[in-house]
């Protein structure tokens, strides 16, 4: 099994970027600069991470591993909060939700013996969990923003009837949590049929028996379902009160007569 991509092969593969740029140019999409920036960023970031991980795996120090995980969690939280459209406390809420979802899921995986407490296993798995949690939380924020705007009167009617802010928001909360989890549920449903997911593909690539590889993929499916559900629930329940003021009124009420 050839697991070494030569620099020459990588350069030739880079020609694929030209295909994307040519399409962008032909269709006047105006994304040429964006593609170049994305490619440069991806190459630099991956090289830096590659060398960093090599060092961290070699040193095998608990403190350093924790620092790496914290950096992953912070970056994931930072990206998730960008989807919140300026909601107050979005960064700490995202951090708590991603920390809890990663912590619980990782804890179960380690305690069950599915993975070992070594940097080469804990760090990549943390990254997978945090990144899926990040996407789920971002979707939750976007859904809540849209729904609190579109269902404004319905929320106000529940408040006017004497409902608590939870009574008024519960429908939106449930819909938003479902929205956050939807991509993970969809990919669980189509795993193996539409695509061979990342973990499984990687192991098969590395020469592992596909039957053994699917066991890891099943574990990944379980952990991502857990992570996105925990992340979505915590983020939605911590965030929805931000749509109300201290007098339990919906913020930014439009003034119509």
């Amino acid at each position: 099994m050839n697991l070494d991509v030569s620099n020459w092969s990588l350069t030739l593969a880079g020609l694929l970027v030209l295909v994307a740029m040519w399409i962008g140019y032909r269709e006047k999409l105006g994304i040429d600069r964006e593609i170049i920036t994305a490619v440069i960023r991806a190459v630099i970031q991956l090289f830096v991470v590659g060398y960093l991980l090599k060092y961290v795996f070699r040193v095998n120090n608990v403190f350093l591993t924790l620092v790496m995980i914290l950096i992953i969690l912070f970056n994931a939280s930072w990206n998730a909060q960008k989807r919140s459209n300026g909601m107050a406390h979005a960064l700490p809420i995202s951090f708590v939700a991603i920390l809890a979802s990663t912590g619980v899921t990782l804890g179960v995986l380690i305690l069950s013996g599915a993975i070992k407490l070594i940097p080469s296993q804990v760090i990549p798995i943390s990254g997978m969990i945090a990144s899926n949690s990040m996407v789920a939380i971002g979707l939750c924020y976007r859904s809540m923003n849209t729904k609190f705007r579109d269902q404004r009167q319905s929320v106000m009617e529940r408040l006017a009837l004497g409902g608590t802010v939870r009574d008024a928001s519960i429908g939106i909360l449930r819909e938003s949590i479902k929205t956050g989890m939807a991509p993970t549920i969809d990919s669980a449903k189509t795993g193996g049929i539409v695509s061979l997911p990342g973990m499984m593909s990687g192991l098969i690539f590395a020469g592992v028996d596909p039957v053994r590889a699917i066991k890891y993929q099943i574990m990944v499916t379980f952990m991502l379902l857990s992570a996105t559900s925990i992340g979505s629930v915590i983020a939605c329940y911590l965030a929805y009160r931000n749509f109300y003021n201290s007098r339990k009124q919906l913020k930014d009420m439009p003034n119509n007569d």
Binding site: Q153, M156, E157, L159, A160, L161, G162, G163, T164, R247, K248, Q249
Partner: peptide
């Protein structure tokens, strides 16, 4: 408490 108040003073849209 706004919730208790709104149960006593009820608004119809």
């Amino acid at each position: 408490d706004p919730i208790e108040y709104r149960r006593q003073v009820s608004y119809c849209f």
